[in-house]
Design a protein around this nucleic acid. Structure first.
Lengths: 340, 340
DNA sequence: TTGTAGGCGTTATCAT
DNA sequence: ATGATAACGCCTACAA
C-alpha cells in the first residue's frame, strides 16, 4: 500500500468539515448541505481518496466477500459455474474467495472457519459433506448449497436453499434416449459412494429401464477422468457386449471415449454413449458427446443471487430449487428418427 | 456471524489478565509467564475464541489475501494455473480472490483498485495490458506477472518479476518437429494482436523454418476455441494443401481438430498438427494432441512463492524468470523415427 | 444540518 | 513480564 494513505480525516480537513460529514457524503446516509457536499467531493477528487474497506468492514461487520467452496477448479463443470458466480457477484459489488476443497471435509471446515472470522458475508458451497449444516447450526451465516445436496440433518428444517438440477429426470432422459437408439445391453458408470446427486442420476436411469423390463450393469466410479479410465476398462472387460453406456458425468464419458478408441471399439457404431453436464468440452471431443445439458450458467447465477438476497436480509425460502435439464443429441448416439 | 462474537477482552476477563497479554499469547510476540499463558489458552479454548481477522488487518495493514487476475477461469490453462496458485498460497496461509478480467483493462483496473483499498497483500496478474505498470508506479504493491509479459515501460526498470515459459524456444520446437515429421507446407494459427507471448511462439516457429529455407502461411487468431473454428475454416480454404499446422495454443488446436474432422481431413495422415500448453484435455481429445508442454503447475507455484516472498519483504529480484518447455509427441503428428 | 465522542477488535508503545 | 492507553480508519449515536 502506498505510504501516504489518504484518510477520511484528510478529506475532512481539506474540505473544512468534520469526518462525520465526509462519511455522510460518501454513503449518503443523511442530508448534507449542498455546498459542503460539493466541497467534500472536490476534496475527495483532489486527494484521490478512497475509503479503507477494512476499516469499513470492522465498523459495518460486512466485507463484501463471498466464499465459494468447490471440489476442484480444474473440472470444467465447476469452473463454468465459477465463471457465472463471479460474474453475478461482481455486478453486485462482491468479490469471490476461491476455496478449492478437493472434497476434503477438513479443508472445507478450515476454509469456512477462517472465512467466518474474516467477516466473509456468505458462502456458496458445492459439497457432499455436512459442513454447511455444521456451521449454519453454530452461526447464523447466509449460505446456499449448489449443485450437490449438501447432506443435511433431515430432522431439522433446511437452513439454506439448495440450487440444483433435476438429476433424476436427467437419468430418465438418458435411459429413454438410449432405448430409442436401440440399445439392449445397458451399463452405467458412476454412482460414487456418498453422492446423492449421482444416485439420483443412476436411479432415474434404472427406473426407466425397469419400466421396460430391463436391467443394467453397474460400475462404481468417482466423477473424474482418470478414475473413469479404470472403470471403463473394467466395464469393457466384464461386459464385452455392452451396447449402451450412461456415464455419470461428462468426464467419465470422455474416459469411455478414450478407452473405446484404444480398444478399437467404435462409438456410436458398436457402443452408444451418453454423458451428463454438457461441459464446454463435450462438443469439442470426437465424436462429439451426446449428453444431458444442465444450465450451468443459470445455476451459478441463481445461487449467487439468492445468497446476496440472504446477505441483504431479504426473505428467501430455504428450499430446494430444481432446474430442468435436457438431452442434447450429438454423435455418440444414433437416433434412428433423426437420420430419416 | 454469530451474535455473541467472543473478543480478546472476553478472553482477558476470563483468564484474569489484560487484553494485551492475550494478544501476546496469541502472536507470541513477547514472553509471558507460563502460568498465565496456560490460563489464557484455557480461556481461549473454553470460550471458543478466534481473533477477528478484520480487526487484525486494520491494525497490521495485512489481510492475508492475494488477488489473482486472469482472463477467464473457464480456460483450462488458466484454471490449472489457478489450482497451483491456490494450493501454494493456502499452504502459506493466504486466500485467493478470484478476478476474472475477460482481458478487459477496465475490469483489471477496477479490480486492482478495489483490492488495494481492501488491504489486499499482493497481486498475481495474467494480462497483456499495462495495468501492473500503472499501479506499481503509483503504489508500492507486491506483485508478480504470470505467463504473459505484462507490458511494461521499457525505459524504467521492472517493478515486479515476470514468471513465464520460454515461448520462443517452444515455437522452435514445434517447427523442428513438424519438419522432422516431413511437413513441407506449413501454417500457423494464432499470434493475436498485442500478445508478446504469441509473437514469440510465432517467431520461434518462423525462424526455424527460415533457417531451412521455408516460409509459413499465417492466420491471425485469438487464443480461443470458437475463434479458432473460424480461423481453421479460413486456413483450410485459403491453403487447402497445407500439411503441417502449428496452433498458438491448445484451444486453437482443438478447433483445428474439429474443423478437420468435419471436413473429412484426416489428422495426422493428411495434416499434422501441434499445439501449445499441454492442457489436461490435450491427451483426452482424439487424436491425442502433440503439443508443447509447459510446466503449468510450476509456473503457478513459483509465481505464488515469489509473491509471498515479496509480501514478506524478502529480497526478490524483479527479473524475467523463464521456464523451459518440451515437446510431447502424441497422435496428431507422426515422427518417422518413432515408429521404427 | 453538523460536529463531538465513542466504538468496531486488534496490536503496539510506553510505562511500571 | 504486564497493564493502561492510544492508534488503525471508519461509522453512528447523541447532542447541539
Amino acid at each position: 500500500m502506498g505510504l501516504g494513505m489518504v484518510t477520511i480525516r484528510d478529506v475532512a480537513k481539506e474540505a473544512g468539515v468534520s469526518a462525520a460529514t465526509v462519511s455522510r457524503v460518501i454513503n449518503n446516509t443523511s442530508n448534507v448541505d449542498l455546498r459542503k457536499k460539493e466541497k467534500v467531493m472536490q476534496a475527495i477528487k483532489k486527494l484521490g481518496y478512497k475509503p479503507n474497506e477494512v476499516a469499513r468492514s470492522l465498523s459495518n461487520k460486512k466485507s463484501n466477500n463471498i466464499g465459494l467452496l468447490l471440489p476442484n477448479i480444474t473440472n470444467p463443470f465447476f469452473n463454468q459455474i465459477t465463471e457465472a458466480v463471479e460474474n453475478t457477484a461482481n455486478e453486485c459489488g462482491y468479490k469471490i474467495i476461491l476455496c478449492n476443497t478437493h472434497d476434503d471435509p477438513l479443508r472445507e471446515r478450515e476454509y469456512i472457519d477462517s472465512l467466518i472470522f474474516s467477516q466473509c458475508d456468505g458462502f456458496i458451497v458445492i459439497s457432499d459433506s455436512a459442513v454447511l449444516d455444521e456451521f449454519t447450526l453454530k452461526y447464523d451465516i447466509p449460505a446456499v448449497a449448489l449443485d450437490r445436496y449438501v447432506s443435511h440433518d433431515q430432522r431439522r428444517s433446511l437452513k439454506y436453499p439448495i440450487v440444483t438440477t433435476d438429476n433424476y429426470a436427467g437419468g430418465r432422459l438418458a435411459a429413454s434416449h438410449l432405448l430409442e437408439c436401440g440399445c439392449a445391453r445397458m451399463a452405467h458408470i458412476g454412482r460414487p459412494e456418498g453422492s446423492k446427486l449421482a444416485e439420483l442420476r443412476a436411479r432415474g436411469f434404472g427406473d426407466v429401464l425397469k419400466e421396460n423390463g430391463m436391467d443394467f450393469f453397474n460400475v462404481t466410479c468417482p466423477f473424474s477422468y482418470y478414475e473413469g479410465l479404470i472403470a471403463a476398462e473394467r466395464l469393457f472387460e466384464s461386459y464385452p457386449n455392452v451396447d449402451g453406456i450412461f456415464a455419470g458425468n461428462d468426464m467419465i464419458a470422455f474416459a469411455v471415449i478414450t478407452v473405446a478408441f484404444n480398444k478399437g471399439i467404435r462409438i456410436p457404431e458398436q457402443v452408444q454413449l451418453i454423458g451428463f453436464d454438457d461441459v464446454l468440452f463435450s462438443r469439442l471431443v470426437t465424436p462429439a458427446l451426446t449428453t444431458i445439458t444442465q444450465s450451468i450458467g443459470l445455476l451459478g447465477r441463481n445461487a449467487a443471487e439468492l445468497l446476496i438476497k440472504k446477505i441483504n436480509r431479504e426473505n428467501v425460502a430455504n428450499e430446494v430449487i430444481v432446474f430442468p435439464c435436457q438431452l442434447v443429441e450429438r454423435n455418440t448416439t444414433r437416433n434412428p428418427q433423426k437420420n430419416v
